[in-house]
Amino acid sequence: MTTTGGVSLRPVTAEDLDLFETAFAGEDGTGPFQWFGFTASRLRRRHAEDGLLGPDGGMLSVLAGRDTVGRVEWFKSTWGRMDTSFCWTLGIGLVPGARGRGFGTQAQRQLARYLFEHTRVERVQAWTDVRNLAEQRALEKAGFTREGVLRGAQWRGGRWHDQVLFSILRGDEEKS
């Protein structure tokens, strides 16, 4: 894959899984907007089955130089029938020391480009907590457009949280 701003994406390795399991094991690692409690990780099993790259989504490691600093993932979402109206929803998790350095912006921009180049979708979307201003800025810098607020959309920490929805459409980069 291409490298932008010293950031690159590549398939997840077994060593990356070790980092993810350690770095994202608790709220200190995930951050307050991505902590959903302790759950069983199925990443190793999926990695053994398909390398975390499947027809309904996948995961890639985010590298800053030669260091793995996080992961980006995508999954199918729909705004109608799945066979005619699906899009990709992406997510990102960076280790605490990599946050606030522009890596997330570059990784999300690269993932959107990758998905447009290698799949037929028209839309890639992401959402984040209304209080997660850093991620909102990162998505906007990556070329995503803020679409609106999804009220009470995410259960986390014992209550429902509003989310801000962003999208980028095929060809948006050429328009700007």
Rank of each mutant, 00 (worst) to 15 (best):
F116T: 07
F86L: 00
G80P: 07
R137N: 03
G100E: 02
K141E: 09
G102Y: 09
D83S: 07
T119S: 15
R101C: 11
Q108Y: 02
Q125N: 03
L111Q: 11
S77Y: 13
Y114S: 10
W88R: 04
R81K: 07
R113E: 06
R131N: 13
L115E: 15
R131I: 02
L139E: 05
S85N: 03
K141A: 15
G102R: 10
W79I: 08
W79A: 14
R99V: 00
Q136R: 08
L115T: 14
N132Q: 01
V124Y: 10
L111R: 03
L133Y: 05
T105P: 03
A98I: 11
V124I: 15
G93V: 02
R120W: 15
H118T: 15
E140G: 08
A112K: 07
Q110G: 06
G93Q: 15
G100P: 05
A138T: 11
E140P: 06
N132R: 01
D129Q: 02
Y114F: 14
L111K: 04
E117D: 14
T119V: 06
W88V: 08
L139H: 13
G102N: 12
T84K: 10
G80H: 11
P96D: 12
L133W: 05
R123P: 03
V124G: 08
I92E: 07
W88A: 06
E117I: 01
L115S: 14
A142R: 08
A98H: 06
R123A: 04
F116W: 06
N132D: 06
G100M: 05
A98C: 11
W127E: 08
R137Q: 10
G80T: 06
E140D: 05
T89Y: 04
Y114T: 11
G102E: 13
A142I: 11
T78Q: 10
